[in-house]
Simulated scan of single mutants.
Amino acid sequence: FLFSLQRKSIVAVSFIAAFLCLIIVRLTNEVTFPLILNCFGQTSVKWIPFSNGQRQPLRAHYGYINVKTQEPLQLDCDLCAIVSNSGQMAGQKVGAEIDKSSCIWRMNNAPTKGYEEDVGKRTTVRVVSHTSVPLLLKNPEYFFKETNTTVYVIWGPFRNMRKDGNGIVYNMLKKTVDSYPAAKIYVTTEKRMSYCDAVFKKETGKDR
């Protein structure tokens, strides 16, 4: 009886040790263990290895697809700052406070250069309307240069964003990533755009 208990204890300890080893390997490498991830409900989370510094989860957002790689947006934010385009930002001197946020969101082609004291200098995500894409393309070196780490999320109606060669805006974006391969340009999927349109109509009573 005593031998049986000892054997069960050894088996239990071995199982726990093996499980912990799998967890450690999973957290320090980009190896996928679907069953373990399912246990924790994190099937769409990718972990950055410890060698990259503090471990942070990157969540996959399937409503936003990279124009070049066709992969979903990987992003996770803790504290967000959504910066308005309004001229009322001038003179506010909140740039340093904004830059403390883990993610900083800006709209369209709102400038930061020359206004750092008021609006900050960092940009994590820039949400751009399909009608504002030409404004960005007037100054591509500023927005899409190699050192720019900003994620661009472009939204617009399907007729402009279609990928069959007839989407005017999508064609512009394709040419942009050809010229600037490091540019992180994403577009909303048709499903995500339909959802956003439905929310807009529900809250305003108007079609976009």
Rank of each mutant, 00 (worst) to 15 (best):
G114Q: 02
A17V: 13
K174M: 05
Y170Q: 03
H61I: 01
P111Q: 05
K93C: 14
Y180N: 03
Q88D: 07
L27D: 08
E30R: 00
K113H: 11
T189Y: 00
A81R: 01
V127Q: 05
E97K: 10
V119M: 08
E190C: 09
P134W: 06
T28F: 02
S9W: 11
V177C: 05
V31A: 02
Y152C: 08
Q56I: 15
N85A: 05
T32Y: 10
G114L: 01
N160H: 06
V125L: 06
V94W: 10
S86I: 11
M193L: 06
F19Q: 04
F19N: 11
Q70L: 13
N148T: 13
Y152G: 01
T176H: 00
K175I: 12
Q6C: 15
C39D: 14
V151Q: 00
R106L: 14
V151D: 04
C21H: 02
Q6S: 12
P49E: 06
T69R: 10
N109G: 01
L22N: 04
A17S: 03
L37I: 10
T147G: 13
K46Y: 15
I48M: 15
W47P: 11
C21Y: 12
T123R: 02
Y170H: 07
M107W: 05
T150E: 04
L73R: 03
N66E: 14
I168P: 05
N166M: 07
F144G: 00
P111C: 11
A81K: 07
K201L: 11
R26C: 06
I185Q: 00
Y142S: 11
C196D: 13
F144C: 02
L135D: 04
V31K: 02
Y170S: 02
Q56F: 15
K138L: 04
F33D: 06
A18T: 08
L75N: 08
V45D: 08
R26E: 04
Q54N: 08
S132G: 00
I104L: 11
E116K: 13
V199T: 07
F143C: 06
M161I: 05
I24F: 02
I98H: 03
R122F: 07
A17P: 10
P49W: 10
V13W: 00
R59K: 08
R7C: 15
T204G: 09
H130L: 01
R159F: 09
D78L: 10
